[in-house]
């Protein structure tokens, strides 16, 4: 499966990733025996794991991998926001599993910046389909209501 990455948080450019595959460890394995996985670079978090106290676990990893067992199982959207916003994790959050073209923008808005997804052309088009967003999320896009206020104040 091809890996696509965003050039920056929010709505950067998307392109195929070039570097070496990461060394993965699951959250359970990591918590049971961190010493044995000292060289791991990517933490794989299942979508039914609580991420409430995960800050110290994720902080040492370059990559956090969140799972969509099916495209319609949307728990990882909330996990991503919590890890990005509440844990202030600034590394790569990668989407794995049921990653469909028409979900990529939702994922980006929730803090994902890497995707196991095969078609870079489709991904690029999908991320350009909407100019605005109504609500704040984990990306840097100002919600419509803030843009309205800015316009009104400038006028």
């Amino acid at each position: 499966m091809q890996l696509l990455k965003l050039s920056s948080h929010g709505r950067g450019r998307i392109s195929p990733a070039l570097e070496e595959p990461s060394q993965e460890v699951s959250l359970d394995e990591w918590r049971n025996n961190p010493q044995a996985h000292a060289d791991a670079t990517a933490l794989v978090i299942p979508n039914d794991a609580s991420v409430a106290d995960i800050k110290k676990d994720v902080s040492g990893f370059d990559v956090v991998i969140l799972d969509f067992p099916q495209f319609k199982d949307g728990r990882a959207y909330s996990q991503a926001r919590l890890i990005r916003e509440r844990m202030e994790y600034s590394g790569e959050i990668r989407a794995r599993g049921g990653v469909l073209r028409d979900q990529l923008l939702f994922m980006v808005r929730c803090g994902f910046n890497a995707f196991e997804f095969g078609d870079v052309g489709a991904a690029d088009a999908a991320l350009r389909e909407f100019t605005f967003a109504y609500q704040p999320a984990a990306d840097s896009v100002a919600p419509i209501w803030r843009q309205r206020l800015a316009h009104a104040r400038a006028a």
Binding site: F71, K72, D73, G74, Y77, S78, R81, Q103, L105, F106, M107, V108, R109, C110, F130, A133, Y134, Q135, A137, I144, W145
Partner: peptide, 13 residues
């Protein structure tokens, strides 16, 4: 309506 429209976190409840 506005807040819930295309809410990125809550589109696959």
């Amino acid at each position: 309506r506005q807040w819930s429209t295309f809410h990125p976190e809550f589109s696959f409840l």
